[in-house]
């Protein structure tokens, strides 16, 4: 199942709507990294609220997205990780180090807005 990517102002918002296969996640990664350049986006939000499992492959690929997107000049925020999913992830040692996580889409947007604003002050 393909993940829809919405372009909203300077941001790309990918909302995962159901369980993803490995191939779906890879496709999402490639699409995001490509579109960040095409739309000259400043930020990427990946909403994982619908994911009931985030294993090493999903976590690793999303971390890759964040790193690649950063190399392309934008910031990634992962939002909506469920409590039980977070609990399982930390047990596995999957802590998404260096990746910003926020409660939900609203918080993710808030984070990006403030970061971009503070960058403008510099």
């Amino acid at each position: 199942m393909q993940v829809p990517i919405l372009k909203q102002g300077p941001y790309l918002i990918a909302t995962i709507q159901s369980a993803l296969t490995d191939a779906d996640i890879v496709q999402l990664r490639d699409a995001l990294v490509e579109q960040v350049g095409r739309y000259r986006s400043r930020g990427v939000i990946i909403d994982v609220t619908a994911l009931d499992v985030m294993d090493s492959f999903a976590t690793g690929t999303l971390r890759d997205v964040a790193h690649m997107v950063r190399l392309r000049g934008a910031e990634t925020v992962i939002v909506g990780i469920q409590p039980d999913v977070a609990f399982a992830m930390v047990h596995m040692g999957l802590t998404l180090e260096g990746v910003t996580t926020r409660l939900d889409l609203e918080e993710g947007l808030d984070h990006l807005n403030r970061n971009i604003k503070s960058a403008a002050y510099r």
Binding site: P83, M89, V90, T101
Partner: peptide, 12 residues
């Protein structure tokens, strides 16, 4: 420690 990390994943 795991709890602190899990809370961070939620954004807290």
């Amino acid at each position: 420690v795991l709890t602190v990390e899990a809370a961070r994943l939620l954004g807290a």
